[in-house]
């Protein structure tokens, strides 16, 4: 029995060293100064309200109803245009809807998204809109609005820095509110 022991044990050790040798060592991660996202529990940034016309940042899909034309500002909300005289079309307002990228309207209700939530907005008076209901996580593709636009919303405070990539799945309990300088690993996101 003992002679088998002296064969088996070295065999196991040499096999182990084979496995060990076959792993390519990676360069060690380095800690650098960068930025970490700071989340807020404040869901007031999700409040849907209408305001004055403003320049469009990211033109998006359009929708026409009656004498009004609506255009998404991707991730920010919906611009309202007066179309009574099409040759003199002008912006007359903006409905703030964080994370919006879609529009459909029927009657007095606008159906849109706030990132991954389906949101219903009462637009019977488009200047005094209000959210009437929300179905959370109804539109998973809405997460791409965040991925596309968080740099514009709230980029890290400096260029040429590493930052911990913000969580892409927003909920009202996790809204990106700012950045804090911290020591992070250099395998995160990099802000050019």
């Amino acid at each position: 029995m003992r002679k088998y022991f002296f064969i088996v044990l070295p065999a196991i050790f040499s096999l182990y060293s084979c496995w060990h040798r076959s792993t390519v060592p990676e360069p060690p991660l380095v800690k650098v100064w960068g930025f970490k996202p700071v989340y807020t529990l404040d869901s007031s940034v999700l409040e849907i309200k209408a305001g004055a016309a403003r320049p469009i940042d990211i033109p998006g899909k359009i929708y026409a109803k009656g004498n009004l034309v609506f255009q998404n500002d991707v991730g920010r909300g919906i611009h309202v245009f007066d179309n009574i005289n099409p040759s003199a079309m002008r912006a007359i307002g903006f409905i703030n809807i964080l994370g919006s990228s879609e529009i459909s309207i029927r009657g007095n209700y606008l159906y849109t998204n706030s990132f991954t939530d389906l949101v219903v907005v009462d637009i019977s008076d488009w200047q005094q809109v209000k959210e009437v209901s929300r179905v959370k996580q109804a539109f998973i593709q809405g997460q791409e609005v965040y991925r596309a636009s968080y740099h514009e919303f709230l980029p890290p405070p400096e260029h040429g820095v590493w930052f911990e990539c913000p969580n892409l799945f927003l909920s009202s309990a996790q809204i990106l509110a700012g950045w804090v300088r911290d020591s992070i690993y250099n395998n995160n996101c990099f802000y050019q």
Binding site: K61, I62, A64, G66, E102, R106, N113
Partner: peptide, 15 residues
């Protein structure tokens, strides 16, 4: 219908 208005061909939400 007048009640609904019209979206474009890229619409992901349709009623």
């Amino acid at each position: 219908s007048d009640d609904m208005g019209t979206g474009g061909s890229l619409a992901r939400f349709t009623i």
